[in-house]
């Protein structure tokens, strides 16, 4: 076992613990955006796809790198976009009671 591997394992275990700690505080209201956000974070595999493309020198390598880059880019770009779109809809109660239907300025509309 190299010290490099040991360092990687330590990082892995500590990150798991940090993940448990941070995420158990997220309220259930935000569980869907949370999962979508976590989804975009594993889009970091795009970095892996880039390094794969850098190592490729034959057809098989290029094909694998192309598919990996396509998948990963879709994951990371779409993930962040849809998370942002969802979170934009969450709003707190208007402080004074709304007089008219002017509150419908968000993405969704109140009635068809």
């Amino acid at each position: 076992m190299t010290s490099n591997l040991l360092a990687d394992i330590s990082i892995f275990v500590l990150s798991l613990l940090v993940g448990f700690e941070v995420i158990s505080k997220v309220p259930s209201t935000l569980h869907t955006p949370l999962m979508s956000a976590a989804n975009s974070i594993h889009g970091i595999v795009f970095v892996g796809a880039m390094l794969t493309a850098a190592q490729a020198h034959d057809t098989v390598g290029y094909v694998l790198a192309f598919i990996a880059a396509t998948f990963a880019a879709m994951n990371v770009v779409g993930g962040y976009r849809v998370t942002g779109r969802m979170l934009k809809m969450f709003r707190r109660a208007p402080a004074p009671p709304p007089r008219d239907s002017t509150a419908g300025a968000g993405e969704g509309t109140t009635s068809p």
Partner: peptide
């Protein structure tokens, strides 16, 4: 690659 290890572990925990 540590970035992949950390991000993957966070998502795994979540």
């Amino acid at each position: 690659n540590t970035a992949l290890i950390i991000a993957g572990a966070l998502v795994g925990a979540s």
